[in-house]
Nucleic acid binder design. Structure first.
Length: 439
RNA sequence: GCCCCGAUAGUGUAGCGGCCGAUCAUUCAGGCCUGUCGAGCCUGGGACUCGGGUUCAAAUCCCGGUCGGGGCGCCA
């Protein structure tokens, strides 16, 4: 139907050279402002809007454009006319148009209406929600975060890997696994690439990272939990201590924040965000030191217990007052960490483990891994796991496994914090939670 | 899983025993308007989550269901 039309011109490529000439454009009809003898139509493309002006002296066919429903996709041909009164500096006087896809009425969610919408309504109609520039900006940021992490990790000699997401055993026990049918055998969606990352440490492909979904069937209804999330994982071998892992991770985060300033200034401005790039190294706060800081805030954390949500927030606030919105908590009690975390030789109550905190929430956790198979098996048994279920994993430790460490970093959570959103779901195109599988 | 809160036109809300024949905005329909850009103005249409109960009377109070929001635990 448009076979004889010239190619559609994007808004950003229409310039002074086009003034007085005919162009073809297409987009969503955002708004029609009909003043009677003159009507202004706002056509929206991915990069912005342009104005189409229809006057009463134009043909009835062209004037019918003002009757097309909002958010319909229309194509039109017309003359670019310079006009200082228009924000873009030009308007288009249409000569012909076609409705390529008519929008039904009324819209289930207004794109430019001056009323709000509940998150549920927005997610139910995500395709319309995403027509809003500020909603899309979050995903531009997210894309840039991925680019920055890939760039940084590559520069540090890491290889991007892709481990399976359908697996036979989980890293953290069974309660949070999604079960699936795998050719009539039970299988699970991967809650973490943990075991596979570690197997790779025995291969020489031993400085790796991955950006991939992880699945957790946690019964958590919070603004920071989601059943399917994007995890930025890394694992590195031949380390002498956890410190080498921390340096890569803090470097990656600092690099990413700087990258956003350089490459996403438009989105940062649109979302009114002011990002600070932290100086590295960022503070390493030991678990015991964190307890002392919290005691000073009037919060008692029983020795050996994990920091609860309130304690974590309070610690974040205390650190923020000292100018640190990014910091590590290190050396957690061994008892609250998974079997693969290395216990400190000189102080077995504590472990070579860490969390990365950003703006009051946990972004990552990691540590040095236990690479001695007998110790892993002992820890597994203590945690009620059967080493027999993990033989595919343990086998990689029986024939030469270098010392190694790594982390898992929640990419959606990071974007959630960076973009200053109220709910991590807003940082995910089509979030999956306990109550939502559609769309 | 536990706790708290909520559910009113397409959307976002006000009302919280009789004044509700339900408010306002937006949207939708129709009309006026030749420089709008959150266009303006006029007219009109459109809703009390479901099931029980209390009461002379229920959008409003009670019980249960469903759905949603937030918090906790846990975590990325």
């Amino acid at each position: 139907m448009l076979g004889d039309w010239p190619p559609f011109r994007p808004l950003s490529e229409i310039g002074e050279a086009d003034h007085g000439k005919e162009v073809a454009v297409a987009g969503w009809l955002e708004d029609v402002r009909d003043l009677g003898g003159i009507a202004f139509l706002i056509l929206r493309q991915r990069e912005g809007t342009l104005q189409v002006t229809v006057k009463s002296d134009q043909s009835a066919e062209v004037r019918a454009l003002t009757g097309v429903s909002r958010e319909s996709v229309v194509a039109l041909r017309g003359t670019v006319q310079a006009n200082e009164k228009v924000r873009n500096g030009f308007e288009i006087i249409p000569e012909a148009y076609e409705v390529l896809s008519e929008a039904a009425k009324p819209l289930p969610l207004g794109v430019v209406d001056k009323v709000g919408a509940a998150m549920d309504t927005r997610l139910d109609n995500r395709f319309l929600d995403l027509r809003k520039e500020e909603v899309r900006a979050v995903f531009h940021l997210k894309s840039h975060v991925g680019s920055a992490l890939r760039e940084y990790m590559t520069s540090k000699g890491f290889v991007e890997t892709h481990t399976p997401k359908v697996i036979s055993a989980g890293a953290e026990g069974g309660a949070t696994l999604f079960r699936v049918d795998y050719f009539e055998k039970p299988a699970y969606l991967a809650q973490s690439p943990q075991l596979y990352k570690q197997i790779l440490m025995a291969t020489g492909l031993d400085r790796i990272y991955e950006l991939a979904p992880a699945f957790r069937a946690e019964l958590s209804d919070t603004v920071r939990h989601i059943a399917e999330f994007l995890s930025f994982d890394a694992e590195m071998a031949y380390i002498r201590s956890q410190e080498e892992v921390l340096q890569v991770l803090e470097g990656a985060v600092a690099y990413t924040l700087a990258f956003l300033q350089d490459h996403a200034s438009e989105q940062l401005a649109l979302l009114n965000l002011d990002l600070a790039v932290p100086d590295v190294p960022v503070p390493r706060v030991t678990y015991q030191r964190a307890r002392e800081v919290l005691a000073g805030e009037g919060i008692e954390v029983p020795d050996g217990e994990d920091l609860d949500t309130g304690a974590e927030k309070a610690l974040g606030e205390a650190m923020a007052r000292e100018g640190h919105d990014l910091f590590f908590v290190v050396e957690y009690p061994s008892a609250i960490k998974p079997f693969y975390i290395m216990v400190k030789d000189d102080d077995p109550e504590f472990s070579h483990s860490f969390d990365l905190e950003y703006r009051g929430d946990e972004m990552a956790s990691g540590g040095q891994r236990e690479h001695r198979v007998d110790r892993i098996e002992t820890r597994m048994r203590r945690q009620g796991l059967d080493p027999g279920d993990f033989e595919f994993y343990l086998k990689a430790f029986r024939y030469g496994m270098p010392p190694h460490g790594g982390w898992g970093f929640g990419l959606d959570r990071f974007v959630w914090k960076v973009a200053g959103l109220g709910n991590v779901r807003e940082a995910i195109l089509f979030p999956r939670d306990r109550g939502r599988l559609i769309p």
